[in-house]
């Protein structure tokens, strides 16, 4: 029982792969599926660079075994944009200089993609607390918070626009 076949969905695509049971989900996504946007910054669950969304919840993919994702639906940074159209978070990070080296960025984007679904109108304090779960060594976080607030506004506008009365 040191290898298994697993089936899972990543960014809407189904995969079936044979995998060593000790492989982490992060290594599986990166090496086996070639989805290298998920980064490894510490491999002990602190930095958050490897954060992906599994079955709707943000999780550290370095602290999960690939076999634990059997049957799961995973979203990674590669699945965030809609084709060539960036997700509002991606747009806002670009607009507000919410990234520098970009290494922590995929984890932060996925954390907030999940967070904003649960908190469509977060307070500044809630944004800060959510961001505290990811380490960034370049930006000093201030522009990330700005970007998230901008994305919130944009997403709210989008929702209002889609409503029956329009914007």
């Amino acid at each position: 029982m040191t290898e298994r076949t697993i089936r899972l969905s990543v960014n809407g695509r189904e995969y079936e792969r044979r995998v060593a049971v000790r492989w982490t989900l992060a290594d599986f996504l990166r090496d086996e599926l070639g989805l290298t946007g998920t980064h490894l910054g510490c491999e002990h669950g602190v930095c958050g660079a490897c954060t992906v969304v599994m079955n709707g919840a943000a999780v550290r993919s370095c602290l999960l075994l690939a076999v634990q994702a059997q049957g799961a639906e995973i979203r990674t940074v590669e699945g965030l944009a809609d084709g060539d159209t960036l997700h509002p978070l991606q747009e806002a990070f670009w607009e507000h200089h919410g990234l520098q080296c970009g290494f922590c960025t995929p984890g932060i984007l996925m954390s907030f993609a999940c967070f904003l679904e649960e908190h469509p109108a977060p307070s500044d304090a809630e944004i800060r607390e959510a961001l505290a779960g990811n380490l960034c060594r370049c930006t000093g976080y201030v522009n990330i918070e700005r970007a998230v607030r901008a994305a919130v506004t944009k997403l709210a506008g989008g929702r209002a626009g889609a409503g029956p009365t329009g914007a």
Binding site: R30, G34, L35, L80, L86, Q90, F93, L109
Partner: peptide, 22 residues
Amino acid sequence: PVRRKEDPRLLTGSGRYVGDVR
């Protein structure tokens, strides 16, 4: 304050760090 040219690739998981070279 122009937007950075680096960002689209880094924001979409298309950056190529040394661990990503295949």
